[in-house]
Amino acid sequence: MNIFRLAGDMTHLLSIVVLLLKIRTTKSCAGISLKTQELYVIVFITRYLDLFTRYVSFYNTAMKLVFIGTSVAIVWYMRLHKVVKQTYSRDEDTFKHYLLIPPCFILALLIPLEFTVTEILWSFSIYLEAVAILPQLLLLQRSSNIDNLTGSYVFLLGAYRALYIVNWVYRFFTETHKIRWIPWISGLVQTALYADFFYYYIKSWKNHEKLRLPA
């Protein structure tokens, strides 16, 4: 474990805490894409299939359980909670997220880490995570005003994978000296998708003005 990866995991955890805080305190999920949240449930389940078969560390197991548990809880809130589900921006959250699944799955069949079920699903989850934020970014562009918690959530979510990239560079030079194409390229694509959001987020933060993404 290195500081960059720990910072990445903590940033990821913080993003989920901020989202749960927003939903629980404001009893609203306005501006949050249910489709992105559903994709994250798939990402975590297909990535952590080895949860009960491969013990890495207490930290690793605990975090996997937290990520799966919280992502399912968020989808439950947005779909089933009697108050929160009324606030879901259903007619703006229109990205056809199910269209992302077949290409990622086909890519996982073509370029798996190993040609075994768990490694194909692991690769699928890495590819899917790279594009899972698209419905959320589209929804942000449509939202007239983005509340601070939603903006912070997306910023932290983008920042976590950027920290993972630093972690990969660090590990390459200090530990593995191996190229890891699947997570590296997916991680770069994932972080690149946040590029314009980062630009407008940091600009709004510096100018103390409301965050607005150009349509």
Partner: peptide
Amino acid sequence: PLDRPMHDEL
């Protein structure tokens, strides 16, 4: 299997 470093990451 842990020789592949990526599987100790989340």
